[in-house]
Design a binder for these strands. Structure first.
Lengths: 210, 210
DNA sequence: CCAATTCTGAAGCGATCGCTCCAGATACAT
DNA sequence: ATGTATCTGGAGCGATCGCTTCAGAATTGG
């Protein structure tokens, strides 16, 4: 928990904070992509020499792996967590998609780091691939839970929850690639509207008010 | 039209057929990705030396640009063309998605070349980006036309065609990234089912039989 | 035959890649 | 202080990148 003074180590101490460097690294990987980010660019942007990076993290791909942990934590806090645990049915899903849109367009075309990694061609470590799969499953589970709550509250019928979950998941991926592919704000808004109005059509006629 | 003997040129003739090489190049770009394909790999796989490639096509990115022409032609023939011009409403869209799925999974995880390019990080020529945008618009137009036909035939209502178009377009992109991201057959099937069953829900109660 | 023209293979350009090596700097334990 | 352990900056490793250069091969026109 305490950031320093775990067990006093011998030898020269590190001149940087590991976690801080990981956060900075994730920003670079996120903005520029994993393969397109060189270890020299990391050295420059993190202010940590390559030898220190390799001494600390071992390899570029292990650095990414550690950085993703931080990314997932932030994602859980801002997007997936609220969808999963904060209650709400269709409204929670709509809020999720609006937050997602803001998330992936905050820096121009940055998208979602994990989904971007899914799209990167081969050459990714198995550990990374495992991570991307796990994350996709976590989003799916959160979407499904929200749909289930919506059904429990009578907002929607109970008959097609799995199909609708997959539809929403597909749109999460589609939104990301649209943004990465350089779609303009109008086009991205169109995709969001498509999701929202489709969800509205899912509502049962006699929805409970409370 | 005739492959040879257009205007008799002076000097040593080319030892390969341009169009044939472009077709082979597109396969490599498609399978391995644009950035991950080196000019030496092209030399090896196409059986044409780098100097000849550069003498003929100018640069790696112009080679890609020419290769995409061939790709789009095949795409139009097998996927977009039928959707756009062959008639049919929801059934045509469903056929389109099933063909798309076969298309992007025929070679493991290959996806769609154009959508893959959308997902590749920066460094793409403006010409290429323009192409990917044009293609996305063409798919959208074809999807919209099919939905319009479905509405004309009374299959679906006329009220939400644009939103539904965007929903389908988003799922085209989502399907692609799911496949590229290493989704298994079951997961990909799930996405397809999600689309098909959602389209079924669009049908008006009193759909005309013919 | 002899220019003139075009294409090809191989070698090589400078730049960059992920990563390593190592001497010097800096800490702790004794 | 001394020894031991760790970290740091810089130089450098071999490999690869997109692309160019160039001498010879292959063709046509005269």
């Amino acid at each position: 928990m305490a950031p320093t003074a775990d067990t006093p180590r011998r030898g020269r101490p590190r001149a940087f904070d590991d976690e801080q460097v990981l956060t900075a690294a994730l920003e670079v990987f996120w903005r520029d992509g994993y393969r397109a980010t060189s270890t020299r660019a990391l050295e420059r942007e993190l202010g940590v020499s390559q030898s220190s990076l390799y001494n600390t993290f071992g390899s570029k791909s292990r650095l990414l792996d550690r950085a993703i942990e931080h990314y997932e934590a932030r994602l859980d806090e801002h997007l997936v967590g609220p969808l999963q645990h904060a209650g709400g049915g269709l409204d929670a899903i709509e809020r999720f998609f609006r937050s997602l849109l803001a998330w992936i367009t905050a820096d121009r075309k940055r998208g979602c780091l994990v989904i971007n990694l899914m799209a990167e061609d081969g050459g990714l470590d198995d550990d990374i691939t495992t991570r991307t799969h796990r994350y996709r499953d976590r989003v799916r589970a959160a979407l499904r839970a929200a749909l289930q709550r919506a059904a429990d509250h009578g907002e929607i019928g109970t008959e097609a929850i799995d199909e609708r979950t997959d539809l929403l998941l597909g749109m999460v991926l589609g939104l990301n690639i649209a943004v990465r592919g350089g779609a303009g704000p109008a086009e991205v808004e169109g995709l969001l509207t498509a999701i929202v109005s489709q969800m509205a059509a899912w509502r049962t006629v006699a929805a409970t008010a409370g």
